[in-house]
Nucleic acid binder design. Structure first.
Lengths: 116, 116
DNA sequence: CCCGATGTTCGTCTGATACCGAACAAGCGG
DNA sequence: CCGCTTGTTCGGTATCAGACGAACATCGGG
């Protein structure tokens, strides 16, 4: 459960880092799933990759400042840092998301609607 | 002078690739300089990097579909593919550019106003 | 016709990234 | 208290990105 608090301060969020984080189809897909602002436990995140790889991607997103992580018991939850990102880079997230949807990028990441 | 024509078709421009191209501060800086839509010879592009490295960055941008290259004699010219990008990913470029400006990203790339 | 300016390509080095399986840590339930 | 579930971390590997200098190609000018 180590350092799940390593999301940067809003002022520390760097544009190139964010773009780098979002330059991976899987990570874009994760962001897509999270785009409604709701939190997800990442047992609900379905992607055709190993757990360790998912963990890695989530870490990259978190450290870039794109997502937040919360821990509850043995489970972890992710959410988009929408307000922060919108404040820092106005218009970027919406543009990115609609572009990703239009381009069918990240569709291999889905959500498992199992309760929890 | 080889393949200066390897800019992809609009439909071939992939979002992750574009984001990857733009995740480098130097390349973001180049895009910033080109953001007014005007063409530049890349003798005018001033960045604290070796010529071969600049050439590399320009190639990455071109192959990602972000820029266009034209050749005239021994000189080459770059321009942003603004209309194409705006059509393909509406709102992305403006958001990116204002974010880069606000964040002082890519300021190490400047323009040399020497005639030519 | 050779030289200088301009870009490209090549080889190399270094460091980052994606991915995996396996080992580890920790909470929760029986 | 033991084991399951959940997520992290640890090698390991393969590939790719950024950077440089040096060599090469080419055009234009003296």
């Amino acid at each position: 459960m180590p350092d799940h608090s390593s999301s940067p301060d809003p002022s520390e969020i760097a544009l190139p880092r964010v773009l780098g984080a979002l330059s991976d189809p899987t990570r874009l897909g994760i962001v897509r799933v999270l785009s409604d602002g709701a939190e997800r436990g990442w047992g609900q995140l379905r992607a055709p990759i190993a757990k360790s790889t998912l963990s890695h991607h989530l870490k990259v997103l978190r450290e870039a400042g794109v997502t937040q992580t919360r821990q509850e018991g043995t489970r972890c939850f992710v959410a988009l840092r929408r307000e922060t990102l919108d404040a820092r880079f106005p218009g970027l997230l919406p543009a990115l998301l609609s572009a990703a949807v239009a381009d069918h990028v990240g569709e291999h990441v889905t959500e498992d609607d199992e309760d929890a």
